[in-house]
Lab assay of single mutants.
Amino acid sequence: STVKVRLGHLEVTLHNVSEEDVRELRELWKNGADEEDLRRWLEEWKK
Rank of each mutant, 00 (worst) to 15 (best):
S1I: 15
S1N: 14
S1E: 09
T2D: 05
T2P: 04
T2E: 05
T2V: 10
T2G: 03
V3W: 02
V3K: 02
V3Q: 03
V3D: 01
K4N: 07
K4I: 15
K4T: 15
K4G: 02
K4C: 14
V5H: 01
V5T: 01
R6S: 10
R6G: 03
R6K: 13
R6I: 13
L7H: 02
L7P: 00
G8S: 04
H9W: 10
H9Y: 11
H9V: 12
L10T: 13
L10H: 14
E11K: 06
E11V: 13
E11A: 06
V12Q: 02
V12Y: 15
T13N: 03
T13H: 08
T13I: 14
T13L: 08
L14E: 00
L14G: 00
L14A: 01
H15K: 06
H15E: 08
H15I: 08
N16C: 05
N16H: 10
V17N: 01
V17H: 01
V17Y: 03
V17P: 06
V17D: 00
V17R: 01
S18A: 09
E19T: 09
E19V: 09
E20A: 12
E20K: 14
D21A: 15
D21S: 12
D21K: 14
D21T: 08
V22G: 02
V22F: 13
V22S: 04
V22Y: 14
V22C: 07
V22D: 02
R23H: 10
R23S: 09
R23F: 11
R23G: 06
E24F: 14
E24V: 15
E24C: 08
L25N: 00
R26Q: 13
R26K: 10
R26A: 12
R26S: 10
R26P: 00
R26F: 15
R26G: 06
R26M: 15
E27G: 03
E27T: 07
E27Q: 09
L28W: 07
L28M: 12
L28E: 01
L28T: 01
L28H: 02
W29H: 04
W29V: 13
W29L: 15
W29K: 05
K30V: 09
K30I: 10
K30S: 12
K30T: 10
K30F: 07
K30W: 05
N31P: 03
N31Y: 06
N31M: 08
N31C: 05
G32W: 03
G32K: 05
G32R: 04
A33R: 02
A33C: 06
A33N: 04
A33W: 06
D34T: 14
E35R: 04
E36M: 12
E36H: 14
D37E: 15
D37K: 13
L38M: 07
R39K: 11
R39V: 10
R39F: 11
R39N: 06
R39Q: 08
R40S: 07
R40T: 08
R40G: 04
R40P: 00
W41H: 01
W41Q: 01
L42R: 01
L42C: 04
L42Y: 15
E43A: 12
E43T: 10
E44K: 15
E44N: 15
E44Q: 14
E44G: 10
W45C: 03
W45Q: 05
K46P: 03
K46S: 13
K47S: 11
K47C: 07
K47H: 08
